[in-house]
Design a protein around this nucleic acid. Structure first.
Lengths: 105, 105
DNA sequence: ACAATATGCAACCATATAGTTGCATATTTA
DNA sequence: TAAATATGCAACTATATGGTTGCATATTGT
């Protein structure tokens, strides 16, 4: 399991976010194809992919001589839930403040 | 306006995420108070705060000799919408695949 | 006025990060 | 089998990052 910070950190780089965007609209693609799209070296792309894999945002599967990359949405959902929780606390605090102000009328 | 990657990058550090958590349950607090809670130097906390401010996740307001820090949820909401959009694309792709497979029966 | 408090700015440091290149290995195809 | 393709691993580099300390400045309380 990844921590929230790990997941956000993985998403917090333009190259990796671009990878995630591309994977979200593709079924899966090979590393070689991906690095051409990104305009960086294969090894550069591979390093970023490993970070996404470690954060459970992407998964790799060897198929013959290719390595297929696919998106894994579980961490993305975890990240989303975390923000939703923050917003919930924020809103309940605002509500408490509102009640306090109104009780003072 | 911040890019998605900037927002995630800002959230992708344990110290900054801790700051965000604390701010979500507090109305606002001074920098001095915050750095004591975090167990790091005031300047260390200040640097992290500036990153959150640049990402529109926190805002600063001078009040006398204090600087009050408050959460700004607009960027958090933007980050959440971005993930929601990714998931939407992901799901529609899965649905298309499902339809394709079933049409093949 | 003066001490205490709360802060900002800048320099510094150790480590992490994003990318590169070179070389070795496994799979496919001719 | 030999060439072409797709990849992994390791070393290297320049820059970014997270934190520190030192010093200057503004506000508050006695």
């Amino acid at each position: 399991m990844s921590t929230e910070a790990e997941i956000y950190k993985a998403l917090g780089d333009p190259t990796r976010l671009e990878i995630v965007k591309r994977l979200s609209s593709k079924r899966s693609c090979a590393i070689g194809e991906l690095c051409k799209d990104l305009g960086i070296s294969r090894q550069g792309a591979r390093k970023q992919l490993q970070i996404l894999v470690n954060a459970n945002i992407a998964s790799l599967k060897c198929v013959g001589r290719e390595t297929k990359v696919a998106l894994d949405i579980t961490s993305l959902q975890q990240a989303q839930r975390f923000i939703a929780q923050l917003e919930k606390e924020w809103e309940s605090r605002l509500l408490a403040l509102k009640n306090y102000v109104e009780s003072d009328k």
